[in-house]
């Protein structure tokens, strides 16, 4: 469960730090604009009823991303569960 993995694989309550953005184009800029740059802490907070999209806590704001997009965000998890 530890190490580098796609954001989409995080379960509710798990968190990690962004280590790479493997998305391009306007989505890349969009993610950066909401504060998702290398080193940013991100926590998975809520899955929608159909399991996709998922809401993440990013710099104090809760933002929902689709699985397709979240696959392109690589996060480093050290396996700790917050709280």
């Amino acid at each position: 469960m530890n190490g580098i993995r796609p954001l989409a694989s995080l379960q509710c309550g798990q968190e990690g730090r962004v280590c790479d953005l493997a998305v391009t184009g306007s989505m890349r800029r969009r993610l950066q604009d909401i504060g998702l740059i290398v080193g940013t802490k991100i926590e998975c907070v809520q899955k929608s009823p159909a399991g996709d999209p998922t809401a993440y806590l990013i710099r104090g704001a809760v933002i929902a991303l689709r699985k397709e997009d979240a696959k392109g965000v690589l996060v480093f998890c050290d396996g700790r569960y917050p709280g």
């Binding site: 989505m27 909401i34 999209p53 809760v62 933002i63 929902a64 689709r66 397709e68 997009d69």
Partner: peptide, 10 residues
């Protein structure tokens, strides 16, 4: 194809 999507839950 569906484009990317970000939605804030205030």
């Amino acid at each position: 194809i569906p484009s990317s999507f970000t939605l804030e839950l205030p």
